[in-house]
């Protein structure tokens, strides 16, 4: 996983609630292997017409938002399907952090596994950031993981929470599987105990 420390740059306002993962990545793109195609997959059906031409009024099709690295959105961002392609779409486009009042649980976890930082901030602060971004086209923001702060277009900083282990993984770009394999002994002991206590779980079907 690519490490995440600090990202600053253009922030795009998704001034909308309930952006589900079906919107972030329409289902038919779930079969696409990770690669450059994902730059176009993010919010595809909002951004493109049926003939693949761009919808010029959609915000991501406008300058300077084509270069956005941060997104700010309304509540319930990423609810719905477990598709990780929703995160791959953000990455493919170049967005490395999404700020919202809350996120779908699975989307939140999927983001962390890919070096995309989901930032939960109180609704009032998200509303303030959205208003500032809408008022000042192309405004820049900064997301700083070491200090756990977001800097808004006006320069004000806002602290956010993140689980310590998730933070460590992101900062170091840790390989989670390699990290877990260090617990090989504990896993083996758990399996031995379980085989003794609940032997039916390992039985072959009849």
């Amino acid at each position: 996983m690519e490490a995440f420390t600090t990202w600053s740059g253009i922030a795009v306002p998704f001034d909308e609630t309930n952006v589900d993962t079906n919107q972030l990545c329409p289902t038919r793109f779930n079969k696409v292997p990770w690669g450059p195609r994902f730059a176009k997959i993010l919010l595809h059906d909002r951004r493109f017409n049926a003939d693949d031409s761009e919808k010029p009024d959609y915000i991501l099709n406008q300058e300077p938002y084509r270069r956005a690295v941060i997104a700010v959105a309304g509540r319930n961002f990423g609810v719905g399907s477990s598709r990780e392609t929703a995160v791959l779409g953000l990455m493919g486009f170049g967005i490395r952090s999404v700020i919202a009042p809350n996120f779908g649980d699975i989307f939140y976890n999927n983001s962390l596994k890919n070096g995309v930082l989901p930032v939960r901030l109180p609704t009032a602060i998200v509303d303030l950031l959205l208003r500032q971004l809408l008022a000042q086209r192309g405004a820049q923001m900064r997301v700083d993981l070491p200090s756990q702060t977001v800097t808004g277009p006006d320069g004000a900083t806002h602290p956010f929470d993140i689980a310590p282990l998730s933070k460590k993984r992101l900062l170091l770009g840790l390989d989670e599987i390699a990290h877990t394999q260090e617990y090989g002994g504990e896993i083996k002991r758990f399996e031995e105990r379980q085989a003794k206590d609940y032997p039916w779980l390992g039985a072959a079907p009849t």
Partner: peptide
């Protein structure tokens, strides 16, 4: 519970998953 592709990779490789207690 449902998980994404990276978590599924972790599960099939280690038979475990990291979770924050809901």
């Amino acid at each position: 519970f449902g998980i994404g592709a990276s978590e599924t990779t972790h599960v099939v490789a280690t038979q475990t998953i990291w979770q924050r207690r809901p």
